[in-house]
Amino acid sequence: MSTRVAALADLTLNQALRVVVDGTPIALVLDAQGEVHAIGDTCTHGDISLAEGFVEGETLECWAHGSAFSLKTGKPLTLPAYEPVPVYAVELRDGDIFIDPTVTKEI
């Protein structure tokens, strides 16, 4: 079941926002094209919050070691990470963002 995690107005363009849904940390990103992305917030290389990193285009880069993850697929695009993070389907309803943390997108 989808859970309201934030208002669309809570997001800042090209910055990540960390939310926790049923114990699952998720990074929300509003990209330059106006699309909202939701990916696992924990870097697979170093157990670091990705929401503290840097958004560039369609990637979110871990601030600690520089691994960049695709916002669309969750796949790492640079080392040292080699395992992907989960990507969640986002539903927008009346200006609010909803996510079901038990359902990841098929990529």
Rank of each mutant, 00 (worst) to 15 (best):
R4Q: 13
Q15A: 13
Y82S: 12
I26M: 00
V19P: 00
T24W: 05
S70A: 08
F54W: 11
P86V: 04
D41T: 04
K72E: 13
H65R: 05
A64H: 09
R18K: 15
A38I: 01
H45M: 09
E35S: 14
V29Q: 07
L17C: 06
V29H: 06
G23M: 02
A38L: 05
L30A: 11
I48K: 04
G40R: 00
T44S: 15
L77M: 14
A6L: 06
I107V: 08
G53E: 03
V87L: 07
H45P: 00
V55E: 08
V5C: 05
L79T: 13
S70L: 01
G23L: 08
E58W: 04
T59Q: 13
F69Y: 14
I107G: 13
A9D: 14
W63Q: 13
A89K: 01
L17T: 01
P80L: 09
T73A: 12
L92V: 15
I48P: 02
A32T: 09
L77Q: 14
D96F: 06
S49I: 03
L13M: 15
T102W: 03
Q33N: 15
V5D: 02
H65Q: 10
T59I: 05
F69M: 02
T42K: 11
P76Q: 07
R4H: 11
T24N: 09
D94W: 07
I39C: 10
E83C: 10
E106F: 09
V90G: 07
G40E: 05
D47S: 14
A27H: 06
I97G: 01
K105S: 13
Y82G: 09
L60D: 05
A27W: 03
T44A: 15
D31P: 09
I97W: 04
I99E: 00
A6S: 12
D100R: 03
E91V: 09
E91C: 05
L17E: 08
L13N: 13
V5K: 00
L28K: 00
D22W: 01
T3H: 08
A16P: 00
A38P: 09
V85G: 09
C62I: 01
D100S: 00
D31Y: 12
P76W: 00
T73H: 05
A16K: 01
G23Q: 08
G66T: 10
L50H: 03
S70H: 02
V19G: 03
L50W: 04
I26L: 07
T12V: 15
E35R: 14
E52N: 11
L60C: 08
A7Q: 10
L17S: 07
D10K: 04
F69D: 04
W63E: 12
K105Y: 01
F54P: 01
E52C: 10
G34E: 10
D31C: 11
A64C: 13
P76Y: 01
P86K: 11
P101F: 04
T24R: 12
F54N: 10
Y82I: 11
C62A: 11
D10W: 00
D47L: 13
V29L: 11
G66R: 07
A27Q: 01
A7D: 13
P76K: 00
V29W: 01
E35K: 13
A32S: 15
E83K: 11
L50S: 04
L28D: 05
A6E: 06
R18V: 03
V29E: 06
T59A: 12
